[in-house]
């Protein structure tokens, strides 16, 4: 956790137009001057532009787009989600950090969120990597403890896709689609990926980690990804606020969770179906552990599995795999 760097950056942001002496900053933060000098260097390494020297004082060159807890916390509208925030400038992966946090046996509250400006080893399914770019993507993981059996856990990842779909559409006005089970697309290109992990007893989840990677302000995608992935900035033609989207998402997700506790699976299935063009009547191909399934979609079952009508009219309920081709 980079709490000290956050405090320094927040202090600098509150004095945007003036140069603050190193002595004063060190005194305000309660650390020796030598420590402050080190922290300034660390912040610079993460890409924050700070002008000045130890004995002339420091000033921010421009307001950096950083997911500071100091900026997020006062604006939270949720009961639990995001109330505990771990903010990093750089971490291997937010899911991996969440898992380490839990394995250390620390008491981590429900709804704790790990957010990082950059991931050095962003993960996808089965060890695939996720392209991370500093200050461009929204990378976070949630720690939850829903009182449900493991078989219902995938509903939460579908719910995450629904909540992010709503947050992005409301905040950016970009049209977003949900590809089964939980990728967000703009047109035919991926803009958001979700990867979840659970640790569970036989009949009850112990902890759940839901990781989200959203491409927000990438000016362009790397050559090898630009045919299959995009960012909200590319699609909307302007930079978007990661903090606004995150706040909107938190609220959407918590409401959906409350509805799920009241009404069960339909609370999520109905909304997913309403927002996904893949839910009904879509011809597609799914690659699942070496086999290819082909058919027309006929909604989701109550666990969130995709009902796929085969050529012979039989319905196959698909629980895993990637939609690799669609019309």
């Amino acid at each position: 956790m980079d709490r000290k760097l956050d405090e320094l950056l927040f202090a600098l942001m509150q004095n945007m137009t003036i140069t603050v002496s190193g002595e004063k900053l060190a005194r305000d933060l309660g650390v020796p001057h030598s420590t402050l000098v080190r922290w300034v260097e660390k912040l610079r390494e993460t890409g924050v532009e700070i002008r000045g020297e130890p004995f002339t004082g420091y000033r921010l060159v421009r307001l950096p787009d950083v997911m500071l807890p100091q900026l997020i916390r006062p604006r939270l509208r949720t009961a639990d989600l995001g109330r505990t925030l771990y903010h990093f400038y750089k971490v291997d992966s937010t899911n991996a950090f969440a898992a380490r946090l839990l394995s250390r046996g620390r008491k981590v509250p429900d709804g704790a969120v790990i957010v990082s400006e950059y991931q050095t080893a962003g993960r996808g399914r089965l060890g695939r990597s996720w392209h991370s770019e500093p200050e461009s993507g929204l990378y976070f993981s949630m720690i939850l403890r829903p009182k449900i059996p493991p078989s219902l856990a995938p509903l939460f990842t579908l719910g995450t896709a629904v909540a992010m779909h709503n947050a992005v559409e409301r905040d950016t006005r970009v049209d977003v689609d949900i590809k089964w089970p939980n990728d967000l697309l703009v047109g035919r290109k991926k803009v958001c990926g979700i990867l979840s992990e659970i640790q569970a007893e036989v009949d009850m989840i112990r902890t759940m980690i839901i990781g989200v990677g959203l491409n927000v302000n990438h000016a362009k995608m790397p050559a090898e990804l630009k045919e299959i992935a995009t960012s909200l900035r590319i699609e909307s033609g302007r930079a978007q606020s990661r903090i606004e989207i995150l706040l909107e998402f938190f609220e959407e997700f918590e409401n959906l969770q409350a509805d799920f506790e009241k009404r069960g699976a339909p609370a999520i299935i109905e909304k997913w179906t309403a927002h996904s063009s893949f839910a009904n009547g879509r011809k597609l191909k799914i690659s699942d552990s070496g086999r290819i399934l082909e058919g027309t979609t006929r909604g989701l079952n109550r666990f969130g599995a995709l009902r796929l009508e085969q050529k012979d009219g039989r319905i196959e309920e698909v629980y895993s795999g990637d939609v690799v081709q669609w019309e």
Binding site: R125, A153, P154, P181, G304
Partner: peptide, 28 residues
């Protein structure tokens, strides 16, 4: 066990020796 991009880590409920593995990797 993976379903819908949710990875469920299955832990052993007992201490002991693995005698056999009854499913093939990557199969439903």
């Amino acid at each position: 066990i993976e379903a819908m991009k949710l990875m469920n880590e299955i832990e052993s409920e007992v201490a002991g020796e693995i005698v056999s593995i009854l499913h093939e990797n990557g199969k439903p």
